[in-house]
Design a protein around this nucleic acid. Sequence first.
RNA 1: GCCCCCAUCGUCUAGCGGCCUAGGACAUCGCCCUCUCACGGCGAAGACAGGGGUUCAAAUCCCCUUGGGGGUACCA
Length: 495
Amino acid sequence: MSTANVRTRFAPSPTGFLHVGGARTALFNWLYARHYGGIFVLRIEDTDLERSTEESVTAILEGLEWLGLTWDEGPGCGGDYGPYFQSERLDIYKYYVQRLLDEDKAYLCYCTPEELKARREEALAQGRDPKYDRRCAQLTDAERKALEAEGRQPVVRFRSNDVGTTEVNDLIRGQIIFENGMLDDFVIQKSDGMPTYNFAVVIDDHLMKITHVIRGDDHISNTPRQIQVYQALDFPVPEFAHLPMILGNDKTRLSKRHGATSVTEYRDQGFLPKAMVNYLALLGWSYSATDTLFTPEELIEKFSLDRVSRNPAVFDMKKLEWMNGVYLRELDPEELTGLVIPRLQKEGLLPESIDAAARERVKKIAVSLQSRIRTLAEFVPSSRYFFEDDIEYDPAAVDKILARDYVPDMFAMLLDKLMQVEPFTEDNIEQVFLEVQEEVGRKLGDVIQPVRVAVTGTRVSPGMYEVLAALGRPRTLQRLKAAAEMAKAKLAGKD
RNA sequence: GCCCCCAUCGUCUAGCGGCCUAGGACAUCGCCCUCUCACGGCGAAGACAGGGGUUCAAAUCCCCUUGGGGGUACCA
């Protein structure tokens, strides 16, 4: 098939949040459509009444929007081939089910789930194939009446072709051949009148003129069934491309116990959509031997299915974090500041409304911390001491670094000089430190580290002069005084 | 059970018969930078699952085994 009028789709079932696996599938479909100037359709597969929820629909749309995976047809934007919720397309499925029934390509089956289950287990126990035994395939009208009189609600089964083979020409894996004898007469319409996945997906993909079905490789085995439905209905068969699965670090299917699996969780943890998209793209796709960083625009330009790998990929949080750090460092100060402020406010570290001066101060702090965080969420704990007066001291740092005998005198000297320096800027602060270092005759680190513990409570922070400048004189002096007392008390205790 | 997919460093991968004493990235380790931590720079360690073929030549092609994953639902 040509790539002239490419139409791809993402068809999630709204039974939870947008999973990273789903997001990756959506991304590949989106990239493929965008690359060829085609159409990306979003369709909601909500035929499972039990598990589908509206909140899930909202969450999925939110997730896609956050990632920037805009759709051309679907919920919220309509399109010529709607409706885009399967639950609103029931008449359409009914019509085609009836057509198959009329053509004797499908039939009513009155077996109950319990009966089927029992027979399946029995077959398995006897070493036989657990496929449906077709006992309802040739029912007479009278038999049907009797069954219905028992109060049985029939399902509709597809009369599958059981001779020969069905071939799937997968764009990623090549030709896959299935023996038709392996297929059984699967259900296409449930007893509640809803279509099943394997049926609805064919009807919709055909009616929505989908040219390329790009989905997870857990659908490979479903493909021959779907192809048979295409054939029974005389629909042209689209192209298929099955993506490798995304696994957890134990190589099993990625799930909650592997950590965050919903994209909104990643958003909340402070990952950037560009980083997420870049990382997801590399899960199963690569461009060259050396390139790994791609903007969405570059991905669109470079994406192709023939560079999609066939092996399953383990989701590597560490690499995602690294990549997020890369994008975080690329943010301009204004942007970073805007991202960080709401998080500080949420933690109560910043008032709801802030003036330009406060914003400027946050910007300085943000820039100081920019190369030291990998997610936006990390910003809050690493910047706390800038916003809170009751700082927490790392006891080990206090013991090892603050409680040194030269510290009280040195702090007194520092206090004296810092009180006078004007203005209280990085350069001037540096001068003070150099003078003090000279006077105490120690290494710079010996004067700075105690100060660091005194003002931040920890032995890790951005450069000391910038921290003090951002902290401001009053707070610096106050913390130095408090720490000097602390050091004295500790030293006295030691004697 | 049966069917299908997959198999290169710990992880993501490059490799599409000779360019491979297998390249890159994350992670790890070391060194440098340095007031700490990051960032950055340099370097190290680290893989073709096993066995048969085919070929002058195989990580690359074929078969088997093993391992992993998926399907076998009135879930999608």
